[in-house]
Amino acid sequence: MAARRRTATAPVVGLALALALGVAGCADSGDDPISLPPSTPSATRTSAAPDPVRETTVDTAAVAFEVRAAGAADKGAQTETTPCARVLLALTDVTIESNSVACKPQDRSPGNGRHGMYRTAADVPPGAATEKVTTPLGEAILFTQQYFEATNSVRYWQEPVAIVTLRDPKSQDHPTLIVRADKGSLDQARLKTFVVTNLLPLG
């Protein structure tokens, strides 16, 4: 029985040697070597779950509204007094702010953390292509600005902005909401859909 095992394996070994020599010969002849595809891990990779969509209520002395969106709803809106009175709400896809009419307009191009100081619809940059839509809070005017960040190199983004003139402002000093898709997180069409469907009156 042992002899039969040796007799059975001898041709297999010979065949393996012949194949090895044949592959080596192909490589020596100048043909491209055979490339095997990388192995695929057995475990399936899963991406992080998206932020849940929630309703966030903003009710300050300056503005009052609700927004249905993904983001840091637990933190709520932040009120700033420096350099002027502002209300800020940072969400996953957009930043919403309301700036006092007493704020000074920004005298430089949007960039390096400055996204423009918009107080009313009159602050739309001259020459910007604009689009108007009606939202549950009032009329919005949309445009896209160029935003940059400069460190060792300069990068640019097309950044959509919507200025919503509030139909019933809580304070005359804060007549608008500014909704911005930082660094182009949404294009202008998607930002338009956002302000039309996700901004709601309080209550």
Rank of each mutant, 00 (worst) to 15 (best):
A2V: 09
A3F: 13
T7Y: 13
T7H: 09
T9L: 15
V12N: 02
V13D: 12
V13F: 15
L15W: 14
A16Q: 09
L19E: 09
C26W: 15
C26L: 15
A27M: 12
S29F: 15
D31I: 08
P33M: 13
I34M: 11
S35Y: 14
P37Y: 11
S39P: 10
S39V: 12
S42T: 11
A48V: 10
A48P: 03
P52A: 00
R54G: 00
T56K: 02
T57I: 07
D59C: 03
V67I: 15
R68H: 03
G71S: 06
G76K: 02
G76M: 04
T79F: 05
E80A: 11
T82P: 01
P83D: 01
C84Y: 10
V87D: 03
L88E: 11
L89E: 07
S98R: 04
S98I: 00
S100F: 11
S100A: 15
A102P: 06
D107E: 14
S109F: 04
S109R: 05
G111V: 05
R114S: 06
R114V: 05
H115P: 07
G116R: 04
R119Y: 13
D123W: 02
P125E: 12
P126T: 02
T130G: 12
K132P: 05
T135K: 00
P136N: 04
P136M: 03
L142V: 03
Q146I: 04
E149M: 12
E149W: 14
E149N: 14
A150P: 00
Y156M: 10
P160G: 05
P160A: 05
V161L: 02
A162N: 11
A162P: 10
V164T: 01
D168C: 01
D168W: 09
D168E: 14
K170D: 05
K170H: 11
S171T: 04
P175Y: 07
T176S: 13
I178Y: 01
A181P: 04
F194I: 02
L200G: 05
L202E: 05
L202P: 00
G203E: 06
